[in-house]
């Protein structure tokens, strides 16, 4: 076989057309995801300079005390603590985990009944209409949706005005600037993301399985526990991850609803990257947060592995 034949065989092959099809996406992912990620990883082990990052390897951005370099290249007299050594970063990481776990629990618990209702109680011809209605909040920008809750919950907001007008309360309730308010806001913002995977999992369940459950002596409720719930766990697991992973890094809600007074991990990363001009420390915190989220997700998947085994 000549070289030419080999070449024409490659250009006409399925492998080539497959590569051609994914190449725009692949290029996009490499440029905008893999490259920034690699940069962040590198920055996190480099030394902080004045408005620059100096490619001098060190691990103190993660653990221990670090010194920045001043504009003239000499080490700064002041030290800062690495991501894992700084009690403030630790506290913010814990708070972020706390908030996103609360949000995840609330979102998934509220999303399940909605998904169940649409899958089991809505007429087949109206299901797409319901899904469409569920996605309507996405028509407005995320920031506006989050800010809407500020309008609802602020001291002079809708909820306080109505309650005061009805004489139920004499002083406005303090709702914004609380963790609870952030949880409510985030749970609302991520609800459709949680509903859809659960809906898909419920749709896939053969309805005769539910009849079989009842035929074999279970009530509707115990059939739900023994058949429907385990079979929909793939959707629940997907929902948990879809909500948990982005909320931990949410940066808008702490600003708009927390009023900047209850910062989360993303806010401190932003501060280090921009205001404090310490990109190596910001990168180290970002990488650490990513590791924590990754580990928790893997652990979660491992604990639920029996639901993820191949099923027909």
């Amino acid at each position: 076989m000549s070289e030419r034949q080999v070449r024409s065989r490659f250009w006409g092959s399925e492998a080539f057309s497959g590569l051609a099809l994914i190449s725009p996406t692949a290029l996009y992912a490499i440029l905008l995801l893999a490259a920034p990620l690699a940069t962040t990883l590198l920055y996190s082990v480099f030394t902080d300079g004045y408005l620059v990052v100096i490619p001098h390897f060190q691990l103190c951005n993660y653990i221990g005390e670090c010194r920045s370099q001043l504009a003239d290249g000499t080490p700064s007299p002041d030290t800062y603590l690495g991501a894992w050594s700084d009690p403030i970063t630790q506290a913010l990481m814990l708070r972020s985990l706390n908030v996103s776990m609360l949000v995840t629990a609330m979102t998934v618990l509220l999303a399940y009944p909605v998904a169940y209702f649409v899958s089991f109680n809505v007429d087949a011809s109206r299901k797409s209409l319901w899904l469409f209605l569920i996605t309507i909040p996405f028509w407005t920008s995320y920031v506006i949706r989050v800010f809407m809750w500020n309008v609802m919950m602020s001291r002079t907001g809708v909820i306080n005005s109505v309650l005061e007008g009805m004489g139920i309360i004499s002083e406005p309730l303090q709702m914004v600037f609380t963790i609870q308010a952030m949880v409510v806001t985030l749970a609302h913002a991520y609800a459709p993301f949680a509903i859809l995977p659960i809906f898909v999992a419920l749709e896939k369940i053969d309805r005769s399985l539910l009849e079989a459950g009842q035929d074999l002596g279970e009530t509707r409720f115990t059939t739900f526990l023994r058949v429907t719930l385990p079979l929909s766990m793939t959707g629940v697991i997907a929902s948990v991850l879809i909500v948990f992973i982005p909320t931990i890094g949410d940066y808008v809600t702490p600003n708009l609803i927390g009023g900047g007074k209850i910062p989360m991990i993303a806010n401190i990363i932003e501060k280090q990257m921009l205001k404090a001009d310490n990109r190596p420390l910001g990168s180290a915190i970002a990488v650490s947060a990513m590791l924590v989220v990754g580990l928790i997700s893997v652990l979660f998947l491992f604990l639920n592995r029996r639901y993820l085994k191949g099923q027909k």
């Binding site: 079989a212 002596g217 385990p230 079979l231 099923q311």
Partner: peptide
């Protein structure tokens, strides 16, 4: 009388074997 209280059992056309 609901199916779970009837003295009958069924073999479904799809067999309805619980896949999990």
């Amino acid at each position: 009388i609901r199916p779970n209280h009837r003295p009958t059992n069924m073999v479904f056309q799809s067999y309805a074997i619980f896949p999990h």
